[in-house]
């Protein structure tokens, strides 16, 4: 009976959504805002990767809200999980192979992470993608050797300062007569590393913040698992 009800529910929902989707102008999207952005992004922002121009320029306020959500989630997680009790048992060590592998991977991951962050305005990638790789770099040793101490105060220092850099850059624009989050420093030459004004700086701050936050989240969840 329960299975039948589930089937009916899912089927009805699927039918409804398909009926709606059939009415959408699929494949011929009405690019209104997007079209205008495609035409003007090179002049206004100067980032070769237009998605970056949208993320940090046109929709910078969304991005601010987004990193703040990660921050709020980290704070909420800390509040919910509390502090790890001293002397709680840990997972066993993962053995020499994984330990060595993690030690080898660490510098490479950090390098790749920073590369992706710093070229976010030129090629696919950016602060979020690179930040996740950075977080993985710092989480890997923790997986291989669960006893590795995590420097939570240090992480929260990076997190706080990086977030502050993002907002202060926006506030500088506001206080010098522009609008909040307006890109500064001109656009530079399209396609070069030092172009797109403050965007690379913002992406660096964002990448560090995302990396620190995700690493902190993962470390806390890993701690929670052994804290019984």
């Amino acid at each position: 009976m329960r299975n039948l009800a589930s089937l009916l529910f899912a089927g009805g929902l699927a039918f409804l959504l398909m009926a709606i989707a059939a009415l959408l102008p699929f494949g011929h999207p009405p690019v209104l805002a997007g079209g205008a952005i495609l035409e003007q992004a090179a002049d206004q922002v100067g980032a070769a990767n237009i998605v970056t121009a949208v993320v940090l320029g046109y929709r910078g306020l969304d991005t601010l809200g987004e990193i703040t959500i990660l921050f709020a989630a980290a704070a909420g997680l800390g509040l919910v999980l509390g502090r790890r009790r001293a002397g709680a048992p840990r997972d066993p060590d993962a053995g020499p192979v994984l330990r060595t592998g993690a030690a080898l991977m660490f510098p490479l991951l950090v390098l790749v992470g920073f590369h992706i962050i710093l070229h976010g305005h030129l090629t696919p990638g950016g602060g979020f993608q690179g930040g996740v790789i950075l977080a993985a770099a710092f989480f890997l040793p923790l997986l291989a050797r669960p006893g590795t101490p995590v420097d939570h105060p240090g992480l929260s220092l990076v997190e706080g300062t990086a977030g502050a850099v993002f907002i202060v850059t926006g506030l500088v624009a506001l206080l010098t007569g522009g609008e909040f989050l307006q890109p500064l420093l001109g656009t530079g030459t399209l396609g070069t590393l030092f172009s797109a004004g403050t965007l690379p700086i913002l992406y660096l701050a964002l990448g560090l913040k995302v990396g620190a936050e995700l690493a902190g989240l993962l470390a806390r969840l890993a701690d929670a698992e052994t804290d019984t």
């Binding site: 997007g34 809200g65 990193i67 989630a73 999980l81 969840l221 929670a224």
Partner: peptide
Amino acid sequence: MVDPVPQALVLTAIVIGVGIQALALALAV
């Protein structure tokens, strides 16, 4: 070129989802 706006939106939405799921797992624990 495809519309860049939805791509930026999805990036934002994914990160929001990650935050919510992390909290959900912590609460479940």
